[in-house]
Design a protein around this nucleic acid. Structure first.
Length: 119
DNA sequence: TGCCTGACAAATA
DNA sequence: GTATTTGCCAGGC
């Protein structure tokens, strides 16, 4: 069933929905995936998903910092990818005020929540 | 089968 | 501004 779309897949879909040059937090992804509060799930899913066509580098923590340990290969890769997309990364941190979706802008960019969508 | 850890978030001190 | 605590769920041992 459509609803049977594992949360796993929903999360991946939500991550893919992130426009280039823009970033989102785990909580934001989880909420958009229909799993409010399940931010940790997003982390596990991303790690298991690998990369494929998944812009995992656009997923940051709620405070705008990269979740990966500074100095790590993933950290460097994410930081490099973000900069390449035009996202300013300073000290492993991204200014959500500039690249993070505003509340109103969020609705415009991300559209209505999947719950309100007849899918 | 049960406990611990984890690419987290939010609240509190 | 950082440090600590609690809640959530899945995966690993």
């Amino acid at each position: 069933m459509d609803d049977a779309r594992d949360p796993h897949r929903r999360i991946l879909d939500a991550v893919r929905a992130i426009p280039r040059g823009r970033v989102a937090s785990y909580g934001q992804i989880a909420r958009r995936a229909g799993l409010p509060g399940r931010a940790r799930l997003v982390g596990h899913v991303l790690r298991q998903a690998g990369e494929r066509d998944l812009p995992w580098h656009r997923v940051l923590r709620a405070d705008g910092r990269i979740a990966l340990p500074a100095g790590s290969a993933g950290f460097d890769a994410q930081q490099r990818r973000l900069r390449r997309e035009g996202v300013t990364v300073t000290g492993g941190r991204v200014d959500l005020a500039a690249f993070g979706p505003g509340e109103d802008l969020d609705a415009l960019l991300w559209g209505p929540p999947p719950a309100a969508r007849p899918r």
